[in-house]
Every structure is written in C-alpha cells, then in structure tokens.
C-alpha cells in the first residue's frame, strides 16, 4: 500500500498546487477565450453566437487590426535588431577585462529592474519636445529635435528607444554568459592560424553564440508582441493610433469599445502568432544554431 502511494500518488500530490494554478488561470482561460471569441458580447447582456465573424471582421471588414499588426511589426523591427547588436557589442567589451567591468555590468542592468512605469515617465520628461533633455542636447548639436510622443512619425520610434535602453543591460548579461562558455583554446588555435579579430568574431564567436541569440530573440519577440505598459502610460496608443500595439488594442477593444468577442478573437490570434513564432524558431534553429559547445 505504501509503495502504491509512493509510486502513484506522490508525484501528483507534488505537482498538484502548481498544476491547479496552471490549469485554472492558464489553460482554462485559453479555452474560454476561444469560446468568447465566437460570440458577440459586451460583457453584460447575453452572448450571441456569431461563429467566426469576429475573426473575419479583423481581416476583411474595416478594422484597425491590420494597422495594429503593422505597428507591432514595425516596433519589433525598431527594437529587436538594435537591442541584439548593442547588447552583443556591450557583452564583447565587458568580457575583455576592462577596468571596473563588474560595476559596469551592474549599472547596465539597472534599467531592467526598474518598473516600466517609472521608466516611461522618466523618458516622457526627457523626450518632452520643448524643455526635455534630449531635444536640448540635439539642439546643441544644431539638430532640431522631433516632437517625439506628439508626432505621428516619432512616437513609435520613441517607444522603441526606451525599450532598447531598458533592455540592453539584461541582454548583454545573457551574452556574457554565452561568451564565457566559449572555450579559450578555440581562439588560441585560430590565432596560430593567423586569424584576426574580425575573423575570430565571424567564425568563432558569432556561431558559438547562436543558441544565446536564439534565446534572446525568442524573449524579445514575446516581449514585443505582449507590450502594454509603454503605450498605456505614454501615448494611449496615439497620436492617430501610431503606437497602438496588439495587447493595448486588446485592452481597448475590451474595456473601451466593450467588444468582448472581438477582443477575445484578437487575443486568440495573438496567442497563435506567439505559438507559431516560438515553435518555428526552435524548428528553424536547427539550421542556424550551433549547439556543440
């Protein structure tokens, strides 16, 4: 009897607390979300079954959804490549034995641990067109600073800028971890073969960092797709919807337009996008990621 208990019951008892929470607040909502998305519902009156109308409306009839997708994609382009390049460069600099490098690592990490709301307000002040720090400094250089959050063209880049600033310290620490795993001998062998710094970077460092890059990329994409805090605090999705991003749009459809079904449909599409992206990245990664370290 004790053996039976040990073998068949204990594992389930151990995972029970975690699994209950995962199921109740994780998996059931995913199913419910799909169910809600098949209805027209304002959260208050009875739901009306409309099959896939909410989904069709997103793509066929007039909807902000295409614009929101475009914004989100543009935001990803503005944010992801610079973050990767800058954090990798920083990591390379910080592993070469520079004076005070541990202090620097700590400092670069700080923006990451500070609440996004703080960061948002801080940058809203810094990017204030008239009396903000950035436009003042640009003015010193003879450049007329843009309107940032007040400009249709500059609001989204401003969000990207903040987000890059917040993230590089964290991602460079990830890269430092990756760099430390590269065996020193590989560089020594390459040096004997007469390889210069650039060659070493291209033929050793980057390939051997590719699993870190994959990880960084996946995190960045999930983060970009689920961005809410910055548009919610800084721009309310404006001006003229230029910073309306996916999750903010879900929030707007749900709690401003009271279109529960439509909001749930967008959630479901977002969720599918996340899954497809993550799974395909891990699949594709067999082609470009080197795991042999």
């Amino acid at each position: 009897m004790k053996r039976f208990y040990e073998k068949h019951l204990v594992p389930y008892l151990l995972i029970l607390p975690a699994m209950t929470l995962v199921v109740v607040f994780g998996l059931i909502p995913v199913v419910q979300n799909v169910e809600i998305s098949l209805h027209k519902w304002n959260f208050v009156t009875q739901k009306t079954y409309v099959a896939f109308k909410n989904y069709k409306d997103l793509f066929t009839s007039y909807s902000l959804f295409p614009k929101v997708i475009k914004n989100t994609f543009f935001y990803a382009l503005l944010k992801i490549p610079p973050t990767i390049i800058l954090s990798l460069s920083l990591a390379l600099l910080l592993t070469k034995g520079v004076f005070g490098q541990n202090v620097f690592r700590g400092l670069f990490f700080v923006p990451w641990i500070v609440p996004t709301v703080n960061i948002a307000f801080l940058w809203m002040y810094i990017l204030e067109p008239e009396y903000g720090l950035v436009n003042f400094l640009l003015g010193k250089l003879g450049i007329l600073g843009p309107g940032w959050f007040y400009s249709v063209n500059w609001a989204l880049p401003a969000l990207g800028l903040i987000s890059i600033w917040k993230g590089i310290g964290y991602f460079s620490v990830l890269y430092i971890g990756g760099l430390q795993n590269i065996p020193q001998e590989m560089y020594e062998v390459a040096e004997i073969d007469g390889a210069g710094p650039l060659k070493k970077l291209v033929y050793i460092t980057l390939p051997l960092l590719s699993s870190t890059t994959l990880f960084v990329l996946v995190i960045l994409v999930i983060e970009t797709i689920t961005e809410f805090d910055l548009p919610a605090v800084l721009t309310d999705g404006g001006p003229a919807n230029s910073t309306n991003l996916l999750v903010y749009y879900i929030y707007q459809r749900a709690f401003n337009a009271f279109q529960g079904g439509s909001a749930a449909a967008i959630s479901t599409v977002t969720l599918v996008m996340l899954l497809i992206f993550t799974i395909s990245q891990f699949r594709l990664s067999t082609k470009w990621v080197h795991y042999e370290i």
Binding site: G26, L27, V30, Q32, N33, T226, S267, L274
Partner: peptide, 19 residues
C-alpha cells in the same frame, strides 16, 4: 506548464479577469 511561458497573461486577460 511550458506552454504558458509563451501564452502570457496579457492574451488570457479577459477570461482571467472574469474568473
């Protein structure tokens, strides 16, 4: 469990709020 790392709270918020 792992899947919830991708299916973040933001995209489950309506049912979670109702629950």
């Amino acid at each position: 469990v792992l899947s919830l790392m991708m299916v973040r709270l933001e995209v489950r918020i309506i049912p979670v709020y109702l629950m």
